[in-house]
Nucleic acid binder design. Structure first.
Lengths: 262, 262
DNA sequence: GTCTTCAAGTCCTCTTTAGGAGTTGCGAAG
DNA sequence: CTTCGCAACTCCTAAAGAGGACTTGAAGAC
């Protein structure tokens, strides 16, 4: 015999899946459910907690419990488009000639970058290994959040690293004021004679920490997508590394690989 | 003034982050913690529940509460390698000539595919749209799980679709017995004169449903990665579509894009 | 020596009780 | 008519207690 709170959760879950309880609908109050199922309120709450953790419902203090809207992942991060736009060969000059601007390539139309911070930090083990430099090497660290103009919640927390000695000659890179970097990081690197060869992206997912949940306004029952973007130059050196945290409930990443080219 | 259970969770979380409570360590019993923090057992349990949902601890009935091992995502799915291996131009013939076998290209060394199931289904709206066919079109649906020989838990739940009429001429494709398809799906498609052009991968993440959690043996506090792989042929037609569910706690996907080629 | 049983320790389920805190709408006061 | 305050409704925090279920190791039976 299954546990009471599980049976109740199963029952409600079925109702939601069947569309009997449509998105946005308010569930009966906990006390009503307790009566209805002949169980105590804490047991009902236990059942609802399960459903909340699955992302099926959302509780609002003082208002009620609601079937969650599918928060259709409208926002998408198509990174290849980013790269096409930013690719190192295109100097800002050429970009102007072709009429391409910073904001005409889809994703970035309504972007806002704000709360950018700039630091010099000593490389922790993790990052140092990726760069292939000794632990403690001085890095340029930039952190910022990105969001769409129409939304209040940011859709990315970004921490980006460069080896300071590698980029020290370009003062624009070391100036916190102009964010985002004009023409994109990759273009800036090109002005240093660093030519990018390939970008590697490592994707994982896990539940958010409380800090991440707060910054990204992640409701209970959503996951965090972690993207580590590593840029290699033509000598096989790692020149830039970004750790990007994305809200799982409104992010959809697309990667395209053309088979012709391989 | 913060809530008691939050303060307790914060305290323990700090101890874990500081390494004071190393991975694998057993926490004091709930009753001890209750004494220690001067709170009731339910309050302690509430605090521990928070940490469990964050993936920091793991509770074992009858044994205790343990700091979770970082389950270092050893398993990685480098999809480009898959494609390289499987790419449509290489017939099985040529593969044999070059000495390449199904199992020598990294990922698949220790793979086991089991519990493969084969169905014909009518396309639901979702899938039909992706294929660009009317709803209800007959599809070949294959579902299977993949796991490493060394692990008991599967590391992928796969559901793969093909339009039946498009592949009906190759009997091997319609035979449930030989799984996985010899030479890979893409090679099989090549024998039908279907030449793949590109593959698009759409990645999202969310908490698992109870069914998914059970099948993938996902502990509480882990996320599910959803990968939809869409294969296009040289005419821009969608020829295959796979929905892949991956355990977030032991999956790390790598995508590489070479900038030279764009 | 091996096996079984059992007790102690652990987390789990469920109840009852008490009060706190956020939200909403209605009615009274201005 | 507008504003304010309050009552009713909601979910949230916290406690105490009784019994259940799982794990482990040690004592006893064979």
């Amino acid at each position: 015999m299954a546990k009471a709170y599980e049976r109740i959760a199963d029952d409600i879950r079925e109702q939601i899946r069947a569309g009997q309880l449509p998105p946005g609908e308010r569930l009966p109050a906990e006390t009503s459910l307790a009566d209805q199922y002949g169980r105590s309120v804490p047991t009902i709450r236990e059942a609802l907690r399960l459903l909340r953790d699955e992302g099926l419902i959302e509780k609002q203090h003082g208002r009620g419990t609601f079937v969650r809207q599918a928060r259709t992942a409208v926002l998408r991060t198509n990174l290849r488009h980013q790269w096409e736009k930013d690719r190192a060969r295109e100097t800002e000059q050429r970009r102007a000639e072709t009429g391409a601007t910073e904001h005409d390539t889809g994703l970035t139309v309504n972007d806002l970058v704000f709360h950018a911070a700039y630091h010099e930090v000593k490389a922790p083990k993790d990052i140092a290994e990726a760069f292939g430099v000794p632990e403690g090497t001085v890095l340029v660290e930039r952190t910022y959040r990105t969001r769409y103009a129409a939304e209040r919640a940011p859709f990315a927390l970004v921490t980006s690293y460069l080896v300071r000695d590698m980029v020290a000659e370009n003062p624009a890179l070391l100036d916190a004021a102009n964010e985002p970097w004009p023409g994109g990081t990759q273009n800036q690197l090109f002005t240093l004679g660093i030519e990018l060869d390939r970008i590697e992206e490592r994707v994982t997912a896990r539940p958010p920490t409380p800090e991440e949940a707060e910054e990204l306004e992640l409701p209970h029952g959503t996951a965090l997508i972690l993207l580590r973007k590593t840029s290699y130059d033509t000598n096989g050196r790692v020149v830039e590394l970004s750790d990007i945290a994305l809200p799982g409930d409104r992010t959809e990443m697309t990667f395209t690989t053309s088979l012709e080219r391989w």
